[in-house]
Design a binder for these strands. Structure first.
Lengths: 206, 206
DNA sequence: AATGTGCAGTGACTATGGTCACAACCTTAG
DNA sequence: CTAAGGTTGTGACCATAGTCACTGCACATT
């Protein structure tokens, strides 16, 4: 199987070749659900291109946990795969993505054989934990206007695009709040000159 | 060095002996601060007896992250030790504790040699992540009364004691809110018959 | 006994954000 | 073209919880 050697370049060439030999690459389109809560995981995804969103749901509310960017993996899948326990989170494709799927039986083997592969997951776990900690900080101390603004800025960086195309209710979901609140706060941010809205698009001034 | 073999009994005897050979056991008293934010970590703690509280601080507010119970370790220390990066969290001793301190240089070695030791940390990481997720859920959807009540119930289980002796402001800190709010909500819980307060002690009914 | 310190109790006020109801739109499918 | 369905804009209202200002209480120290 062909592969771009720049991807997961932090792993040793030897392991990288094994990974590409045993794995499959799948292409997903924007909006595809790739993981549901309570679903068992049989392959570990590593995003090669695109963007995947991982989120949790409480009652009817949703909360964005993290994005998986190229070269990153999903620790929740990793653990679910390792322990053969069902997933507690959801994942869906935000941007058309190319994803490397590693069969779970090799995971166990390789984390023993390749310390840097093992470390990769510790790094990811740590990263995600700190991100979540950060999220809690924002929820606890920031007001909606700041949370929303930071959220939009983060998104614009991820997409490498000043302009975001999302409905108010989608944003509300990601922040775990109601649509009207987003409409209200977006208007406020607009009068403050921090963003510009037109035709369903939001431009971040920064 | 003597040790109680029941402790960390899930590890292989061979490793357990090595751990006790190379580690020191320290005794801490209630209230001791054992880890500050931005501090570098040179030993990995495993709690043998007692209870250790790990928390984070945002501005002046504090938030309880998790308790380390006997046989558990602190993933935040683990990662900080592994990567030689400063800690992002605080830890303090809740109940007089006996703690096993493993020098960091052996950690790296043993996680390579002993897969079950390695797995221990994945388990802990996963556990803590899910706990934090749960906490976010509560913050997002529960009202203060429920959050407080659940918090008290959890504490009473940890201490194996129906009665909790804590000041209102301590509780407020752990939940990231203000003292008056706790006073108010405790009163509410009392009229609902869910708790009884007297002389600085809180008794949880049910 | 007098003073100080910390904790608990309380009423009043306020701000934030969640909810409701409804109007005014676009866009798209029939 | 028109109806339907989704999106946005808005005013009114309300509940929650954070803040302020103060009182009273208990205990310790001098």
């Amino acid at each position: 199987m062909k592969f771009d050697p720049k991807i997961i370049s932090f792993l040793r060439p030897e392991l990288r070749e094994k990974i590409f030999e045993k794995s499959t690459i799948m292409v997903f389109s924007k909006g595809d659900e790739i993981l549901r809560e309570e679903q068992f995981v049989k392959v570990l995804p590593i995003v090669l291109e695109g963007l995947v969103k991982v989120y949790s749901r409480f009652n009817d509310k949703e909360l964005l946990l993290y994005y998986i960017e190229p070269s990153q993996s999903c620790v929740m899948s990793f653990y679910a795969a390792l322990k053969n326990t069902p997933s507690k989170v959801f994942a869906s494709v935000e941007e058309d993505s190319k994803i490397l799927l590693i069969p779970v039986n090799y995971i166990t083997k390789w984390i023993k054989e390749y310390p840097d592969f093992n470390e990769l997951f510790y790094n990811q776990f740590n990263l995600r934990y700190l991100e979540l900690l950060d999220t809690i900080g924002h929820i606890l101390i920031d007001k909606m206007d700041k949370r929303l603004y930071e959220h939009l800025k983060k998104k614009s960086h991820l997409y490498a695009n000043q302009t975001i195309k999302m409905s108010h209710s989608q944003i509300a979901n990601e922040l775990g709040t109601a649509r009207e609140v987003i409409t209200r706060v977006l208007k406020k941010l607009e009068t403050e000159g921090k963003i510009v809205q037109n035709m369903g698009k939001i431009k971040i001034i920064d």
